[in-house]
Amino acid sequence: MTRFVPTLADFAAALADGSHVAIPPDYSGVALAATRALIARKARGLRLVAVPQAGLQADILIGAGCVAAIETAGNNLGEWGLAPRYTDAIQRNELRILDATCPALHAGLQAAEKGIPFIPLRGILGSDLLRIRPDWRVIDNPYGEHDPIVLIPAIRPDVALFHAPCADRDGNVFVGVRRELMTMAHAAARTLVTIETIHEGRLLDDPALAAGTLPALYVDTLCVAPGGMHPLPFGNDRGDDAAVAAYVQAAQSRAGFDAWLAAWLAEAA
C-alpha cells in the first residue's frame, strides 16, 4: 500500500542506511529536497547506482559522507564541468567506484524488470571496463559462432528515489516521457517519490496521462515537496543556474563544500 508521509524528514527515514539506491540523471527527476533531508538525518553507507549517469545529487551526497559506493557511467555537472566531490573522493580512495557504461546500467535494470539474472549486450568488448568489472562476463553467443558477447547481471536496487510532477491520491505517479524513472521503479524493491503536487482525479482514467503513469503497485512512499528538484531544471522550470554555479565554486575545496552544505541545510531548517 502506497503511503503518503507528511514531511521530508519522515520520507528520509524510510530510506535505510546502507541501501542500494537508484538515482536518475540531472535532466530527469532528481529528488534534491529529499537528498537534503537524507543528509540532515545523517544517512550513511548508501550504495548509489546512477541511471545512467550521476550529477549534482551524487556529488552532494558524496561530499556529505553519505555514500560508500557508486556505480555510474559518469559523473559530471554539465557545462559546469567535473563533479568536484566525486573526483576528489575517488582520487583520495574514499569512495568505491564501479565504473560502468550507460547502456549496461539501463540493460541491468531491464533484466531486473523481467526477473531474469542477466542480459546480453553488444559493444564493450576491448574496453578496460571488462577488466575492472569481473561481474560483467563474456560468453560465446549460443545462437552464433565464434561471436563473443557481454553479459550484464541484473541490477536490483533496494530503492528507486526520484522526483515527479504529480501523483493521485491512490499513489499512481505521473512521470510523463521520463520512462527511465519507470524502469528504475520496476527494477527496485521499493520506490520513494517526492512530487510537486497532488493530482485531483485518477491518473489511470485518462489514457493520455495513463501512458506516462507509474502505477501505485510499484510505489512505496510519497511526499509532496514543491520545488523538490531545485536548483536543477524540471519541467518548464529552467532551474537556478546561479545556485548551481555557486555550488560548483564552493565545492572545489573541502572547506568550501562544508560551508555550502551548512548553509544549504540551514535553509531548510
Partner: peptide, 20 residues
C-alpha cells in the same frame, strides 16, 4: 586506475557506441 593521478567523469556510453 586504482590510484589515479587525476580522475575524470567516466566512460558514459562510449564503450558501447564506439563499436555500434
Amino acid at each position: 586506475y586504482a590510484q589515479p593521478t587525476k580522475r575524470f567523469p567516466g566512460s558514459f556510453g562510449s564503450a558501447y557506441l564506439y563499436s555500434l
